[in-house]
Amino acid sequence: MLTERHLQIFIALAEEQHFGDAARVVGITQPPLSQGLRRLEALVGAKLFERGSGGVELTPAGTALLPFARRALTSIEELHQAAVARDPEGPEIRLGLTPEVPVSAGAAVAAACSAALPGSRVTVVTAPTSSLVSQVSSGRLTLAVVLHPTVLDGLEAGPVQLLPTWALVPAGLASDPVAELKSLRGLPVAVRSRAEAPAARDLFLDTLAMHRPDGGTVVVTDERAGLAMAAAGQAIVMTADSSLAAPGVDRHLLAGDPLPTRLRLVWSQDRTPFPVDVVARLTEALVTP
């Protein structure tokens, strides 16, 4: 049976002339792309591409059939759009955000979801990275913004987005607006539980220990608690959230930005394939002010 995916493969290969690039455009890996092409060629009874030295080229049959494939795919897309427009609820996109995503960045990604996939209904939950990864794997979430690095277990992932991270310190602890991490002494750094994202947390802690061998850490439940401890003169908070503020708490950039918040989008290719341009727009939204 000829499917939408076959048409996507045909058109992507014709445009990219390269198996790897076409696979990325369609949002699948190379083996299913090759398999899909073989199936399509069997279905239409003609060889559509020749493999050359640098990539693939359309055969005369491929050139002749390409316009029909384009028309068919356009019609299918119109069908989807019409169906979404008719469904008062629209398709549901369940978005997960790790708590380290700044409040405004989370909102921007949700808004970008809504804009990139018109007619969709976006619901959002916040949960630790390890929980988000398993929820995306099990299909309970459509996609999530998680801390990098983390074990992805077969999920697809977008580019790594680095968010600059500020130190929130009790007023007077540091004088320079751009502080050296090693100069922030005498107070523990507030961190969330390690089990929430072991690899990312260890990277944070190892980097912190390299720059600042003493001072230690204190485990907090969330940034709200960390900020309160900073206000009480008890802790330093590292945050990518530009809006987190409290009286008696100063905000400093860190020289060389040694502790960036690394975020990336993850989704399940089997359940919800996202085209690369949508992934790029959502990833971009993480850093758009």
Binding site: R24, Q30, A157, P159, V160, L203
Partner: peptide, 8 residues
């Protein structure tokens, strides 16, 4: 650690 591993 600041970038994704190249595909493949």
């Amino acid at each position: 650690n600041n970038r994704a591993t190249p595909t493949g």
